[in-house]
Amino acid sequence: MIRRLSPPLIVFAILVYLFLLGPLVIVIGAALSDTTYLTFPPQGLSLRWFEKIFEMSAFRRTIVTSLQIAFASTTLALLIGIPAAYALNRYRIVLPSWLSTLFVLPVLVPEIVLGFSLLRSVQVGAGVPVLIALLLGHTLIVLPYCVRVISASLASFDFSIEEAAISLGSPPAKTFFTIVLPNVRSGVIAAFILAFITSINDVSVSLFLTGPGISTLPIQILAHVEQFFDPVVASVSVLLMLLTVAVMVVVERTLGLTFLAK
């Protein structure tokens, strides 16, 4: 069935896309500018601001830190989130309903509040080193995504499949790895990606927890903009965007993006 789209709808759709994509186009343009200040449209084309990123040790260091924190916090959140999501779904009837809300709490509390309270309690209060505090903070903010996404996967998992495996002689723990996990694999991968991107892009919590000598990329961008107004920030932003796009492409190739929308 072919339906004709009404002209106002087409105009509206174009406006929405412009609103979504416009800023990205401007950032990419600014990053490629040959000038020493941020400008759009770009004047002259150059990749020198991309080279500049890697010449500045602060950016090199914070890119590495951001990747480390993102990997570590996502892994940690999955280690907590997978068993939590499993228990919340498997024992839904006997568990109190507020328990599942508990795991979403970190996204409901304003991140500024979360960052500040982590600074007070973990860093200042307990004297935890900066890197560990960052790791804990990020784990906390990405955990809700892990629990939610994996829960959604498990909600459509038929637990009688698990019982069938057990009745055929597979011990419960082994059954979890050979039967349950392979069937929520797409959920686990989606959770990993969402969590990873959330961690890489986080500003609010990191702002409170970064300390002398240790910072993450978004915080470094912020600090840089405060002092300089050169296209380096734009090129770093493009780099961050490319990283996100790369992750999405990997997902699209392995699973198809549609499942993220489920």
Partner: peptide, 27 residues
């Protein structure tokens, strides 16, 4: 339960979706 050696047939079949028919039976 896994040591009881009882054959179970479920209402919703409960086959392992990620395994072939042969691997399901051989499980």
């Amino acid at each position: 339960a896994h040591k009881r050696n009882i054959g179970l047939v479920f209402q919703n079949y409960a086959l392992f979706p990620h395994l072939s028919v042969l691997d399901n039976v051989a499980f």
